[in-house]
Design a protein around this nucleic acid. Structure first.
Lengths: 228, 228
DNA sequence: ACCAAAAAAAGAGCAGTGCTCTTGCAATGG
DNA sequence: CCATTGCAAGAGCACTGCTCTTTTTTTGGT
């Protein structure tokens, strides 16, 4: 069975993997904008039209890379969380933030692929959602754990936002107080603001000691979600 | 004089302006990635090669649009600051933040052009710096004014970051305490994290009542820089 | 072991891109 | 008045994503 129709299927998987690998190489080297199906095919010694048997379009290939990038970042975040498993919640939180930054600095083009401007006319399909959520869920988990224990600062929450905050809490962390859920989502966006600014050059001639600056800023983020 | 060599020069300025206008139209409609010199030329009834007399490359044309976008956003921020001139510093701060968000929502592609992923291999020239700085300077001004008056919360600053914070303060707001300068730059990046996440679709199925959520988040940012 | 069917690869071609180079025309100013 | 300069046009190069058709290869049942 596995050898019968497995031969073709295996070959197919291998070629698919090779295409993705070469495409990722090109994205890492030159950026998503310069990813060219023809160049991928050329590098793999096949003709460009053959590639369409594996990916129906350039966008589909990009989607595959996007999912991989989200997963790689998510894995890095999870790893950092596990390494810091015994630390205080605030330290665990900042450790994950630094892991996000480290991964981004190490994979700038892949980071840009997932957190940069989306390609106009291209809507990421729903299939990316689980992978995209991983990193956020790591942060949610840390704050949730902290809320089981003692010693959390109480957070402000205007009445106007309470319904929305309750909805957000119910949907992504049922055992989290609404004000913590709202604060966490804000911190999540702000974390990526810090990383993106550094990576996209906005800190050029503004922030020099970026490592230390980031450390300080994410300490503030941790405080913002009630950790200390 | 103005008519002598002004005739040609005037025609040149007019054509240059028309090119920029049409290019901006295309960016606003389809995004920077789909900006095509040939399409611009076609729309203007000229041949593509003629366009190179006005802009030496596509990147140069994009640079012109980038500067315009920075200036438009900066102007929107300044206008919001002036309108809220009599309000308390915290309210002025959040008013500017909301102006940034409003402009971004109204000009998503132009926002993506300046705060999205940079085109690989394209480094924004130094000439963009003044325009790029405008919005940040508005925030600096508000916090600086607040620090002349009373009632500011004191901010933490780890020893390790003090030298860098002092350098940052000296360079962009000499009359601002170093801890405020560091906090402000962080808030600045975080503000654009919030806006980018909303605009780039990361809040999809996460935040629904985005207006109120943003209001709450930027209130937190204002608190983070010492305002209340 | 053969042979129809399915899958993959190859080739040609379309419409588009940025950019360069050469050629012809028209406005400019000494 | 006429050489110089600025500009427009055209042709062409080397690419791109993608489609359609033809050829080759692999597969599984008889």
């Amino acid at each position: 069975m596995t050898t019968a129709q497995g031969a073709r299927a295996r070959a197919r998987n291998e070629v698919t993997a090779a295409i993705k690998e070469e495409a990722r190489r090109q994205v890492a080297a030159e950026g998503a904008a310069k990813l060219s199906l023809r160049a991928v095919a050329r590098e793999l010694g096949m003709v460009s039209s053959a590639l369409y048997r594996y990916f129906p379009s350039r966008d589909e290939l990009l989607t595959a890379l996007i999912i991989d990038a989200y997963d790689a970042l998510g894995a890095a975040a999870e790893k950092a969380r596990d390494i810091a498993a015994d630390a205080a919640p605030a330290a665990r939180f900042t450790a994950v933030c630094e892991a996000v930054r480290d991964w981004a600095l190490g994979h700038p083009h892949e980071y840009a692929l997932i957190y940069g401007s989306p390609v106009p006319g291209y809507a990421a399909p729903e299939t990316t959602i689980p992978s995209a959520a991983r990193t956020g869920l790591v942060l949610v988990g840390i704050v949730r754990d902290a809320h089981q224990g003692p010693g959390l600062a109480d957070l402000p929450l205007p009445d106007a936002l309470r319904p929305e905050a309750e909805r957000m809490a119910a949907e992504l962390a049922p055992d989290l107080p609404p004000e913590a859920a709202a604060a966490l989502i804000a911190a999540w966006a702000q974390l990526f603001g810090l990383v993106s600014f550094e990576l996209f050059g906005q800190f050029h001639k503004v922030v020099e000691d970026r490592e230390r600056f980031f450390r300080h800023a994410v300490t503030g983020l941790a405080r913002g979600v009630g950790l200390r």
